[in-house]
């Protein structure tokens, strides 16, 4: 690990003020950042410790929504009775991720910003455009079994690893931030992530030194919710494919559908095409097949991960079947 200057911030304002230089990093739980620092994938010259900021509460909003402090640990968020009651997909997604120890430490804000687990990103002996812009991508044509089939570019096929962020997309969350100039922003989760294109090292729309302070969940959606995750072992593994789903059926027709996917793309993937294929239709096998067609129309495998395309189809159809059966 390269050495660094360590500063502890006691207020969000002090945190953004203390953050200077391109290579500084905020540290909260640190479960991903420190791992990357040990491997020298991340080499910040300064760490701003935000773990003691007063951002660890979950507060009620007037419309029944919740404002979640960026420092609420994943474990606490998953176990909050209001989250279980109103946003089951979020609780389920969090509980499907990591281990008990990691969920105790990992923060809500940090979870949104965790980096890909692409082997080539972690291996500093390999070429990776995300780690070293312009160096090339050894994952394309390499061992890419766990990597993306949607939203990729010729420069990067990494997947976003978060389960939580998939649920946040299905729930239309909003990310609240504080910028270094003191401005505050509200960023829809749908606008928060960037596809790799030719700049895979830039993963979100956050500016340098912009601090996530809260995540806001809107009024709870009506209908049923589910999170289905397919992985190589039953526990403590990243998703090969996951589906975060909210569906509302009225008079035997699908009135509302919100579907987000993990393990398939460089960001938590929300597909409007899937939703358009479902809304207004009866919940039948044909409807589900059409939704899967819509999801995967643009899907492209890279050899090792070709299996994800039929796996995503089956996982989506199974999720729809479970949610619409009585």
């Amino acid at each position: 690990m390269k050495t660094f200057d360590y500063r502890k911030a006691l207020t969000p304002e002090a945190a953004v003020e203390t953050f200077d230089g391109e290579t500084a990093r905020f540290i909260a739980g640190g479960t991903n950042l420190l791992d990357l620092m040990k491997l020298q994938v991340e080499t910040p010259d300064k760490l701003v410790d935000i773990s003691r900021l007063d951002l660890a509460s979950i507060d009620e909003r007037e419309d029944g929504g919740l404002t979640i402090g960026a420092l609420v640990p994943n474990a606490d968020l998953a176990a909050d009775p209001r989250v279980i009651d109103r946003y089951e997909v979020l609780s389920r997604a969090l509980l499907a991720g990591a281990s008990g120890q990691l969920r105790n430490k990992a923060s809500t804000g940090g979870n949104l910003l965790q980096r890909t687990r692409c082997y080539y990103f972690y291996d500093t002996g390999s070429r990776c455009n995300k780690r070293t812009p312009g160096s090339g991508c050894d994952a394309i044509g390499g061992a890419n079994r766990i990597l993306a089939v949607l939203g990729t570019s010729e420069h990067c096929i990494a997947t976003h690893p978060s389960d939580m962020a998939v649920a946040m997309r299905a729930l239309d969350a909003t990310v609240l931030t504080l910028k270094r100039d003191g401005d505050r922003r509200r960023i829809s989760i749908h606008d928060f992530y960037r596809l790799p294109g030719d700049t895979p090292h830039i993963e979100t729309v956050l500016d340098t030194g912009e601090l996530i302070t809260h995540i806001e969940l809107p009024k709870p959606p009506s209908g049923r919710q589910a999170y289905r995750k397919v992985r190589d072992r039953a526990s403590y593994a990243f998703a090969l494919v996951s589906v975060g789903a909210v569906i509302h059926i009225q008079e035997r027709r699908i009135a509302r559908a919100a579907f987000a996917f993990g393990g398939l793309a460089p960001m938590p993937w929300r597909s409007q095409a899937v939703e358009l294929a479902l809304i207004g239709k009866a919940p039948t096998r044909d409807t589900f097949e059409a939704a899967a067609d819509a999801l995967l129309a643009e899907a492209k495998g890279f050899g090792g991960n070709d299996f994800k395309i039929p796996l995503a189809r089956r996982t989506l159809i199974a999720t729809l079947r479970d949610l619409t059966e009585h």
Binding site: Y6, I27, G29, T31, L34, G100, Q101, L102, N104, K105
Partner: peptide, 21 residues
């Protein structure tokens, strides 16, 4: 998980956190 300790009663991986914090 071999490094698991309890910090304020909660189990965590002590290898993935800085002592200074």
């Amino acid at each position: 998980g071999a490094c698991t300790m309890l910090i304020n009663g909660r189990r965590v991986n002590s290898c993935l956190t800085l002592a200074v914090m």
